[in-house]
Amino acid sequence: MIELKNVTKLYGKVIGVNDFTLTLEAGAYGLLGPNGAGKSTLLNLITGQLQPTLGSVRVLGRSPRNHAELFRHLGYCPGGEGMYSEVSGYDWVCYLQRLQGMSAKQSRIAATSSLELVGMSSAMNRPISSYSRGMRQRTKLAQAIAHNPDFLILDEPFNGLDPIGRHELTTVLLDWIGLGKSLLFASHLLHEIESITQSFLLICGGRLLASGTAEEVHTMMVGLPNEVAIRTESPYELASRLMQEHVAESVTVKGEIVTISTRNPAVLYEKLPAWLQDWGLAVSEMRSADESLQALFNSLMKMHRGEL
């Protein structure tokens, strides 16, 4: 479905995407990367809004640049807002469906049903300027799915949504995938993507660092140093005890925070509660670096550079 061969995109001297090679068959994929990783540039290359400086991009077998036929099968929900504040959500979605090639009547039907699907029925005739951020996100999603595309690209679609909204949109997207349609979902939050799909593309610094299922990514991480930060009133005692237990590669103390670098976090998590009880130490906060996406990316970047 999507094929990128050695794609590099330069903005002057700034690299947006760096030597990116990827082949994706039809399915649901999560594009995961921190802010500034090159996700939007990659999506712009896939939707033909940008032309690669080097390499080639093929979507459905053809270059996506000025590819009218591709746009009939593509739904795109960009990261930015960019809506006309003075018109209603309904008018805006209708208008975009007219541009999709629908008749006025078809566009009205499509806009109504898609806005209903994303839970915007009651507010769809209000001006967009009166919408909350979550309502705008829903309306953006409605314009992307209204023409029933085969391939949906979403850039940070959960931004600004409350937990109920997230849950509702997750259900909509899971139903979408259930219909056998394809989805590329970009986000900088792991849990957002995990709720939709188990197929990941990890991107950072404009490079594809890893791809596969969540399990495969975790398997790759086995043996890599993980950082765990623990807040305690006796940081030096805790640091000393942990070193004696041989679970830490290194320990750093800063104020009340003990930062432990470990190659076997599972053992640490398993045994730490008992140890703390035995040692009589109280811990008020513990943050696992395994949950920190940036740490994961840092490790992958180091792997990519051959530093690990």
Binding site: A68, P78, L99, Q100
Partner: peptide, 18 residues
């Protein structure tokens, strides 16, 4: 400037029609 171009440009003949 409004960042609304992208919504129009990903439509068949969108930019031309606009």
């Amino acid at each position: 400037e409004r960042k609304s171009w992208i919504y129009l440009a990903v439509r068949p003949h969108g930019s031309l029609s606009v």
